[in-house]
């Protein structure tokens, strides 16, 4: 469905992605792991067209993602949420469907309420983001991304800005999405979680994909010393 072919990217003189290729199939759950600065975030940001690639192509159903109409095929949940603070929870979710897809307010609200129920926050519809906990904020961000019906949802370290006790409520929402057959790519340091929900795990380092395989391949039958060490660091 999404094919990333031989993409490279540099920030000034520092290469952040070097010849990265990746196929994302419908319903797949891909876990991206690797040390900070490995290029996980940049890869995700390239797929949602927030960063321009220097070479290579990224296509969704063989159409290039740089086309403006392709923007909503992908959705992303950011590490630091980026909810719109001046809008209520429900307005955060319904804004884009209304002004981008021209859906009527009442329909957008209905859909928004359904999504809020899905992330377990129906009672927060009229609150402002400043009144929510970090975990609730991130769940709203997930609902907001889902409101545009993306074909793939990317998560850029969705729990890294959260206290440990708030992490689980976000992870369980993501787990539910994976069960519902949503196509997901998630960059995270939550190794146990990645191992549990991903069907493919990718290890990145220094802008390259170093290893790719099933969770068992990566986490248990790992022969690469560097990857082994990295995984142990988090267990």
């Amino acid at each position: 469905m999404i094919s990333v072919r031989n993409i490279s990217k540099q920030f000034k003189d520092t290469p952040v992605l070097q010849d990265v290729s990746l196929e994302i199939k419908k319903g797949q759950v891909i876990g991206l792991i690797g040390p900070s600065g490995a290029g996980k975030s940049t890869l995700l940001r390239c797929i949602v067209n927030l960063e321009q690639i220097d070479s290579g192509t990224i296509c969704i159903d063989s159409k290039k993602i740089t086309d403006a109409k392709m923007q909503t095929k992908t959705g992303i949940v950011f590490q630091n949420f980026n909810l719109f603070p001046q809008k209520t929870v429900l307005e955060n979710i319904t804004l884009a469907p209304q002004i981008v897809n021209n859906i009527s307010k009442s329909k957008a609200n209905q859909a928004g309420q359904r999504l809020l129920a899905k992330v377990g926050l129906s009672d927060k519809a009229n609150q402002y983001p400043s009144e929510l906990s970090g975990g609730q904020t991130q769940r709203v961000a997930i609902a907001r991304a889902l409101a545009m019906n993306p074909e793939v949802l990317l998560f850029d370290e969705p729990t890294s800005a959260l206290d440990p006790e708030l992490t689980n409520e976000v992870l369980s929402v993501i787990r539910q999405l994976a069960r519902d057959n949503m196509t997901i790519v998630i960059a995270s340091h939550e190794m146990a979680f990645i191992r549990q929900i991903a069907d493919t795990v990718i290890f990145m380092e220094k802008g390259r994909i170093v290893a790719k395989g099933s969770p068992t391949d990566i986490f248990e039958r790992q022969t690469n010393v560097r990857i082994k060490k990295f995984i142990q660091l988090f267990n």
Partner: peptide, 17 residues
């Protein structure tokens, strides 16, 4: 925060919106 702009962009909003 530039994340605000990015959040709008990934939801498909154009520059004016």
């Amino acid at each position: 925060d530039k994340g605000q702009y990015e959040a709008g962009k990934v939801l498909g909003m154009n520059y004016f919106q």
